[in-house]
């Protein structure tokens, strides 16, 4: 899956905006938003917010957690905890990227937020790498991945499941069946990549 597709999914999350215009409701297929009153905050999907912001028709209210102090706390928790802590949003990376990308003027201390979120991401990624190492070394055949966000899961997508696939295949491989099974297993091997193109 492309990171863009994860972003696509994350763009459905609601964020608060303060519109600078007055208009009746927008009736989208996925729900009604509005009516818009200039100056009154309203919650809309992220993609609507970004679009409005690009047209300079609104101001974005950052989500509660998108704040230097809160993020510092999350970062400390993440550092101290051995397991993955629950992130304030399933798509925190997407929201940070999109909102800071288009509305850094609406979010106080945007640069600091960017750095802290990157730190949190790095801590989690290094945790993820050591968990994967453990997982493979212990020959586990399944793993709980609670609290991992979609972007994080996606970052190990092509590699980890593929590696476990190979381990499984080596475990189940029976060398004495004859040359037939060898050619078969070779052809299964070359095929596997097809299931991981996405």
């Amino acid at each position: 899956m492309d990171p863009e597709e994860v972003e696509f999914l994350g763009e459905k999350h609601l964020v608060s905006i303060v519109p600078s215009f007055t208009s009746e409701s927008v009736h989208l297929i996925q729900g009604d938003y509005g009516p818009f009153r200039a100056g009154l905050p309203i919650r809309v999907p992220l993609w609507v917010a970004v679009n409005l912001k690009q047209q300079k028709r609104c101001r974005i209210q950052p989500p509660e957690w998108m704040d230097v102090d809160t993020l510092e706390l999350i970062k400390t928790d993440e550092k101290l905890s051995r397991v993955f802590t629950k992130m304030p949003s399933e798509f925190y990376m997407v929201e940070v990227k999109q909102l800071l990308g288009c509305a850094s003027d609406d979010i106080p201390r945007a640069d600091e937020i960017r750095t802290i979120v990157k730190d949190i991401w790095d801590i989690r990624m290094s945790k993820l790498r050591s968990s994967i190492d453990l997982l493979v070394k212990n020959h586990e055949m399944y793993a709980a991945v609670d609290n991992l966000t979609m972007m994080e899961i996606n970052s190990m997508r092509p590699l980890l499941p593929h590696a476990l696939d190979h381990i499984y295949r080596m475990k189940t491989f029976q060398p004495n069946v004859g040359s037939q099974s060898q050619t078969m297993s070779f052809s299964t091997h070359s095929r596997v990549s097809t299931s991981f193109q996405s």
Binding site: V145, I153, R157, L160, P161, H162, L164, D165, Y168, R169, T188, R191, V192, S195, F196
Partner: peptide
């Protein structure tokens, strides 16, 4: 060609 049913998924 058969799909690899043992492949790992999230």
């Amino acid at each position: 060609v058969r799909p690899n049913m043992n492949s790992f998924v999230f």
